[in-house]
């Protein structure tokens, strides 16, 4: 299965991926309308210390601990893609506790959100990958 991988050698810490992610999942077709004067809640995060940085997003684990820990059955696996049904989420934060990567976080509506590789929004392909200016994030089979 194709996944999003990061290569910290080429990450510039520009944070554009976070903004493209927030835009992609806003449901709007205008980046300005989606993000201007708003606190953004991207589904991937730039981890940075000193001169090293990289984007962290869901690994879509073959043994997803978040799914195992979900008490509401909101997280499921569809052909390897780990998705969350936000209507079922009860806000217990178990997935956040379980995920070793910190790849889940509360959304603006409080329920949990996670990267679904843009397969469940209108974009179809990971927008963070398309928006990265230096190929530090790639979407490929490994």
């Amino acid at each position: 299965m194709k996944r999003v991988y990061v290569n910290e050698t080429w990450c510039l810490g520009c944070h554009l991926c976070e903004y493209y992610c927030a835009y992609a999942n806003s449901g709007l077709n205008d980046m300005v309308k989606a993000l201007k004067d708003k606190e953004i809640r991207p589904r991937l995060t730039i981890e940075q210390e000193g001169t090293i940085s990289f984007a962290v997003s869901c690994r879509h684990c073959t043994e997803p601990l978040c799914m195992k820990s979900c008490i509401a059955g909101a997280i499921s696996c569809k052909d390897g893609l780990i998705v969350i049904d936000q209507s079922k989420c009860v806000n217990c934060y178990s997935c956040i506790m379980a995920c070793p990567y910190g790849a889940l976080m509360p959304s603006v509506e409080q329920v949990m959100q996670k990267c679904e590789l843009c397969a469940t929004n209108s974009h179809g392909q990971p927008v963070c990958v398309q928006g990265c200016p230096n190929k530090a994030i790639v979407y490929e089979e490994r």
Binding site: L12, G13, C14, H15, L16, Y19, M31, V32, L35, K36
Partner: peptide, 13 residues
């Protein structure tokens, strides 16, 4: 200003 989303990429780059 009507388009700037203050993502600060200009500042960082």
């Amino acid at each position: 200003e009507s388009r700037c989303i203050t993502c600060r990429v200009c500042e960082r780059q």
